[in-house]
Design a protein around this nucleic acid. Structure first.
Lengths: 354, 354
DNA sequence: CTGTTAGCGCGTTCAC
DNA sequence: GTGAACGCGCTAACAG
């Protein structure tokens, strides 16, 4: 049996309460006493039983996820993952809730953040929008002592506690490398479809993509960026036009969420042999990959991101350190052959998390 | 507050003990009483607090991982992950231990399995070797009611409860697809370096690779398989010879663990422009990827596998169902640009495991 | 400053 | 068949 608080109380010749005070770093213990207890702790190699501690505390941690609304499949997937985590989270004394706000709307996001502060939640995770109101709201959350993490799209200068998402410059580089290698010697320009250059992750992906493409042995023209506002209809029109006008088009990099429109346009422009790379595995991109319309999909695992956010917020709420290496979100590459057959995945941190 | 056993007892008009009997499906409850309790359970939407349950049980689950010994970096990585999980596992009342046996030695493995059965462990995870003794030993474990999972390399007809690892045929296909696309129109044959065709995962990878290569638009010769026994020295010699003899070699697929020798030979044969694809991210393959000697590395995340094995064994030990989709191990593709900077990763299942 | 005591939600003897 | 009472390891009120 591993040592308990009783063992260290006995060994140090003090009571349980004193041990508890030392363990939780609370005031009201003399230096000498504290030292004795600490010695006993290391002697016995004591490790706190978190489950029992949480049980005793019976404290719940209300965490809020603020996500953009609309039919962006990736965001809806994120939302699903939060709900899924919610099922298991009761065990861990975490109470998850999701609120959605209009996409790209800084003041709406700021309002929702303030509302969460008002409700005195234990932590906030949000997909950041680059706007001064948001910066200010994050500042208020921090002032109120509420942990704040940015999700998917960062706002590094906001003072947020942590960013949870992929390195988008590296993502762009990866796309560029794959595009370059898949195309090889084949001539022709490449088109880029983005949502909007006003959001940071899209800008960063483009930056990485251009860098990787220009580092390729074969130099290749990149057409001016098409901004589809992550809207299926607009994206469809832009791609369809591009296909019609640029007869020798060699490839398309879709770095935003307008993939439904993209795929529709690709399906229409049959017979064209293009190299297409997109982001995020969704129903559309999965089908397109399987059908050969898309060659590779880069992905960030929404489940991992949600669980990581929960772990980080809880750690911050408890004043515990975060193991950065453990919370790094990987950029996954999928081609037709390694696509997982079903949506769901991972653990637990569920397990301890995944 | 969510409902507890007390609430159920009150609502059903019975005592705690009766509720407990119903919850744990134990005898000694009349049909009517049972029905009342069950009604109360669904009415209140009760979900058992596993943490509290485990606390009360104070039962520990000793689990054993049996891994091949030797300097196979992937296996040593697996071992590290077990130890890492061991740190967090105390919380979950799981006691992990690792034993190593000579690689490819069926009778040694069988002996170790029997030893674990003797010690009455709560579950066994092992990298299977395809031998009749192993089959028999797994049968004895099952007879003793001890859950058994195969890790990395399967033995489907053994009656094991579960296999934890990647689909190796799909892994081979993925390698073939990438190889074909990276090479494009470029002529020249491709070499395959394996450990030994006597282990199933290697055979399966080869099968998938050949299938994908033959499905490519450009047909390409595949040289006879080189068997390096996962030995660095032998692998080095085989590859060096091959490089010397086949002047127009276009690519190499290394599907086993002889990567140290491979990389050494590649570094020596400088100036050759080859497409090289290997398995498992280790120090060697990581460096080779960064240095441009290797083009892509396929990987199975050892941390995920270990945590999955733990979850599955515990579930089986408790007679709980396993969510197959959640336990599927993904095949990861890494190129230079999406290589994670450091080894560590994920959660927990810790909770979840991620 | 320190110790006592009563739970947290559940499982498990024992008696009835 | 059923119920009351105790303990798992820890925290949080109280006293002292």
């Amino acid at each position: 049996m591993r040592p308990t608080v009783h063992d260290i109380a006995e060994r140090a010749g003090v009571s349980l309460a004193t041990v508890d005070r030392v363990l939780n770093d609370r005031p009201g213990v003399r230096g000498v006493t504290r030292a004795k207890v600490e010695a006993a702790i290391v002697d016995l190699g004591y490790v706190r039983d978190v489950a029992a501690a949480n049980l005793a505390k019976s404290r719940v941690y209300p965490l809020v996820f603020i996500l953009p609304e609309g039919d962006n499949p990736f965001m809806r997937g994120l939302e699903d993952e939060v709900r899924r985590a919610g099922a298991h989270s009761l065990v861990e004394r975490t109470q998850l809730s999701v609120v959605t706000v209009p996409a790209f709307d800084g003041s709406a996001l700021a309002r929702e953040i303030d509302s969460a502060i008002e409700r005195a939640v234990a932590g906030i995770a949000a997909v950041a929008v680059d706007a001064p109101e948001v910066l200010a709201a994050i500042g208020r959350a921090r002032e109120a002592g509420i942990p704040f993490v940015t999700l998917v799209s960062d706002l590094a200068n906001s003072g947020r506690d942590h960013f949870i998402g992929v390195d988008n410059i590296a993502a762009g580089r990866t796309a560029g490398s794959l595009m370059g290698r898949f195309l090889g010697q084949r001539p022709g320009p490449v088109a880029v479809l983005a949502g909007s250059m006003r959001v940071r992750d899209h800008g960063e992906r483009l930056e990485g993509f251009l860098a990787a493409m220009s580092a390729m042995p074969v130099s290749r023209a990149i057409l001016p960026v098409l901004e589809g506002q992550d809207d299926p209809e607009l994206s469809f029109r832009l791609i369809a036009e591009c296909l019609a006008e640029v007869r020798d088009l060699a490839g398309i990099y879709s770095l935003g969420a307008g993939n439904r429109g993209l795929v529709r346009a690709l399906a229409a422009g049959t017979g064209r042999n293009l190299c297409v790379i997109a982001h995020e595995v969704t129903d559309e991109t999965r089908a397109a990959l399987e059908g050969g319309l898309v060659d590779a999909v880069l992905n960030q695992d929404a489940g991992h991101e949600v669980r990581s956010a929960i772990r980080v917020l809880r750690a911050k709420a408890d004043g515990l350190p975060v193991i950065a290496a453990q919370e790094r979100i990987r950029l996954e590459i999928f081609i037709k052959d390694n696509l997982p057959s079903e949506p769901g995945m991972d653990d637990t941190p569920g397990s301890a998390g995944n």
